[in-house]
Amino acid sequence: MEHKALRDICLSIPDGQFIGIIGHTGSGKSTLMQHLNGLLKASEGAIYYNGEDIYEKGYDLKKLRSKVGLVFQYPEYQLFEVDVISDVMFGPRNQGLSDTDAKARAEEALRMVGLPEETWEKSPFELSGGQKRRAAIAGVLAMRPEVLILDEPTAGLDPEGRDDLFRQIRALHDEEGMTILLVSHSMDDVARYTDQVLVLDHGELKMTGTPEEIFRRYKELETMGLGAPQITYLVHELKDIGIRFESRPDTVDEMRDAILKLYKEAGGKLGKEVR
């Protein structure tokens, strides 16, 4: 009857990377996430953060949790305070900061997620779905984590809200140098935003590599109930009718560049002007 949610997982996460984690429902993604900040304890094995074993006696797990920020799926369901700003201050306060410092941190975090100032004093329950989501993410960011783990951060958001949020997450990575782990079901988003991809299947780490390397093996991914970005499929279909690209585009932008390149090589003889 014993069920192992995860087994033989061996991975290292270098500073400053943007890592995507994909896997079918029940593949152990969320379980893995919760191990990384010590919410769940592995029955065997060890986890090192900055070289320190987090299972060592006397290791400060509370501190680890503020360094490794974890945003759960549908994080807006954890909001509880009377107004947005106090809710975001919850994390910094737990870190032992004074009210003024906590408030400064909260404001900084709210700006990072792009929540307009007029919403800060409102009750979190008055906000729209997307705004609630941002407030909840700010609640984790306010602790100034070095690593940010996001479990399906855009689930249930409209396309515009999704793009916005991803852009901000990308900015956290590019500008603040945060290490980001993103769990997602959207192959397109993973291809578009991440530098490295981990593929989990039935609790095992099946593949690691750049999105390009991973999505090249889309046939294998399909056997795990996953797939590849739309563009990857398009590339393969074009290949079947004889159109080949030098690069292996996985995102719309890469595809555009590849097509333009082909077009230019062909001497632009296709008639219409392409901008």
Binding site: L39, K62, R65, G69, V71, P75, Q78, F90, G139, V140
Partner: peptide, 13 residues
């Protein structure tokens, strides 16, 4: 369980 974990992730004790 889920809410407790989420608040613990924000340093709740």
């Amino acid at each position: 369980d889920k809410i407790m974990k989420a608040q613990q992730a924000r340093g709740a004790d």
